[in-house]
């Protein structure tokens, strides 16, 4: 399904997604106890190859928190972190929970190795962030949007994203991708939130936003 939007319609959608991305950043900030800066979101139609490029290229290694989206809007959401930044975020989250000096995590030189507590904290960060985004959209739809339980994967970005993209591109060459980047001032934690809605469920959202026919 291809929906054509006027420039005004696109602006309405971009504004709403921007607000939802901001809510997601606030949720991550509240969870981590840090001020999280949210970059102006990018919302565009793109090919699968372009989505992979937006994630840093198919071979870039990421820690990804995946959440499936069901209900009034359907699709996929991923929160991606560079491995070293994911470690830093996990440390911040766990320090907030356990208190300084109580971290049971042994330092490791391997950025790809995470212990169970770190993975659990990062999984929850994705859950909270993506749920905040979806709650904002659900307010416009007046219907619930349900996230699946989150799953954490440390892998090449292409390998994680292709599973999601293949689900979306079977009857379309392009997907609608919303992306923003979170960072924590001073000591960088760069996280990228991707939201990839299923085309056939977009119409309800666009109708609810009044983005069609303006």
């Amino acid at each position: 399904m291809t929906l054509t939007l006027s420039e005004a319609g696109q602006n309405v959608v971009a504004g709403t997604f921007g607000q939802a991305m901001k809510r997601a950043g606030e949720a991550l900030g509240s969870m981590s106890g840090q001020v999280i800066e949210v970059q102006a979101p990018m919302l565009r139609r793109c090919t699968a190859a372009e989505v992979l490029a937006m994630a840093g290229g198919p071979e870039s290694v990421v820690l990804a928190v995946y959440v499936g989206i069901f209900g009034a809007l359907e699709g996929h959401a991923l929160l991606l972190f560079p491995p070293a930044d994911a470690h830093r975020l996990a440390q911040i989250l766990l320090t907030g929970l356990l208190g300084p000096g109580e971290l049971p995590i042994e330092a490791t030189n391997d950025a790809l190795v995470y212990d169970e507590l770190e993975l659990s904290a990062l999984q929850e960060s994705g859950n909270v962030t993506i749920s905040a985004f979806l709650n904002e959209l659900a307010m416009h739809l007046h219907e619930p949007i349900q996230p699946t339980p989150p799953q954490v994967v440390v892998e090449m970005a292409g390998a994680v994203l292709d599973a999601v993209l293949l689900d979306l591109v079977s009857d379309a060459d392009q997907v609608l991708a919303a992306k923003t980047t979170f960072s924590e001032g001073g000591r960088a934690i760069d996280g990228t939130l991707f939201v990839l809605p299923r085309a056939d469920s977009l119409r309800a959202l666009l109708d609810a936003l009044g983005a069609i026919g303006i």
Binding site: Y66, V67, G68, F70, H76, T148, P149, P150, Q151, V153, E155, A159, V160, D162, A163, V164, L166, D167
Partner: peptide, 14 residues
């Protein structure tokens, strides 16, 4: 043809 994700609506395309 890997199965990267185990949650969601069966992304068992691999």
């Amino acid at each position: 043809a890997a199965a990267m994700l185990t949650v969601g609506n069966g992304l068992a395309i691999g």
